[in-house]
Structures are given as structure tokens and as C-alpha cells.
Amino acid sequence: MLNHIWLALIVIGILTAAGRDIYEVTQNAYGNDIPWQVSIDELEQSPAGTERTVSLRVTQSELRRHFVTDSFDDGCEIKARVSMSGADAGTLILTVDKGLPARFATMAEALGSEGTLTAQLRRSGEQWRMTLEPVSLVYLKRVTNAAFDIAGVAVQIAIGLIGIMALWLGVMKVAEQAGLITHLARLVRPITVRLFPDVPADHPAVGSMIMNISANMLGLGNAATPFGLKAMEELDKLNPKHGVATDSMVTFLALNTSCVTLIPATAIAVRSAAGSSDPAFIIGTSFLASLTATIFAVTISKLLARVKMFRWDRAEAE
């Protein structure tokens, strides 16, 4: 299942990007090689070899013509640095800021030029015309950049876990040797023997799972992950088929991903920052929604374990 979804995300992503790019090429959606008519007042007396900052005005109809869309309500004004190579020609470096139509930012991103666009400037008669660098395959470039960037981010996330993992696994080891984790497991025995029938009631896995779920409920994400990974390690010790998820692991993760939330701290913080009059209003609704989801998740994990394609006895060990 995970195989198929993983592959589908990549295939759908790349094909969509390619499809959009082909469509944009057929439409010439960035107006490649079509000169823009611009008006620049201050440029009349600029001799060759000078460099100055100017302001270009682009009309609404020029925007619509180049970007092949009716979605512009107004023209725009672009700040640029111009260096004249002759009386009638020069090079422009346009500053792409937030005030400009988003297409310009997309072009700068696709050209990898970080907030600027380069254009050739020419005079024909009374009119100034600029020609921007051609842009194509915007989405495929985005996909490539995203893939490379996130590969680095993923490693940073994993490395970032090392410290917090080391700290908690150290503390947990002490608790384990002192027999605390086993005590904790015995305490919740009536619940866990039903949830995890293939885990012995006083196994250290149970203690770690309880710690993980309690930490999640309190919104202590930093502590929850080490407890959870410790629990997975303990569950894997009971696993006769290496590389295959056991029923208990799936039930544990079902509990974990849908986990009952007492305080959704991040969501409250964002609401507060966005100017909500009652940021904590969602505590009740989050609690009820996650409680419903948790009950459902545990039930469905038990039911799906019996479906033929997911059955334990059909899964092959590595």
C-alpha cells in the first residue's frame, strides 16, 4: 500500500509538472521573445555608458498580452537599474518585489536569479521596448529544486533528533533498569491486553507506548518521539518477521497519529497571531474530533488486519 502511494505521489507530481509546462509552452504563457512596450520618462537624456535607477510603467493590456490571461486589473510600475550601451539601447535589471504580479516572481524563480530579471532595452522611434530573458519549464524546475532541497532538510530533521533522542533514551534506560517501566505497564494492563494482544502485559514496550501517548496528549512532541521510537524498538524485539509491521505496531501508530489532543498548542498560537478573539476556542472541538478519530483508528486497525491483502501470515519476512 505504502509502495503504491509513494510511487503515485512521485509519478503524479512529475507528470502534472510536465503537463503544466507543456501547456505553458504551447500558450507561450510568459510571453517569451515578445517585446514589452514600456514607458520610462527619465531615460531621454541618458548618454551611453551611464547607469541609473529608473521606474518602468507597464500597461494592463501589455500584462494581459504577455501572460495570456485576463486576470490583471491594472498595469504596474517596476523599479529597475538601467545601463545604457548606446543612445538607443541598454540593459535592464528589474527588481521583482511583492508589489508586482506573481508571474514576474515565478519567472525570476525559474531563472534562478533571486528577485531580479534581466532585459534588453531598445528604442524604436518614440517607444522603448524591453525583451525579457525567455522562461520555460517552470514546474519541472520547481520539482527538481524541491526534491533536492527537501532531501537535505530530511537529513537535518533526523540529525536534529539525535540530541533529544539521546537525552530521553538515557533517562528511559535508568527508569527501565529501576523497574519503573514494568510497573507502569502493569498499571494499565486492563487496557493494553485488549489493544495489544500479542504483547506480554508487563513488557517494556507497553510502558514506552503509554509514555509516548501521554506525552502526545499533553502536546510534548519533543519527548513523545523518543518514547515512541523506544516503543517501536521494544515491539520489534517481539517481531518474528524482520522488516514487517506487526498488528501491535499498526495499532500503536493508529493511536499515535490520531492521538487524543488536550491542548493543540500550535494551532492556538497561529490563531492568536492571526488575530482571533478566542484562540483557545478549538480546544473542545479538537478534543472531540481527535477522540472520535482515535476510537475509529483503533477499530479500523483491528479490522484491516484481517483483510486478505494485509494479513500477517501472508506477509513474508526478509
Partner: peptide, 14 residues
Amino acid sequence: AVGIRNTRHALPTG
């Protein structure tokens, strides 16, 4: 963390 590659019904459940 435990090298599980066959995740069985974990994803549909989630």
C-alpha cells in the same frame, strides 16, 4: 527507526 519496509495496513488505517 526499526527498519520496517512492509507496513501492511498502517497507511490505510492512518
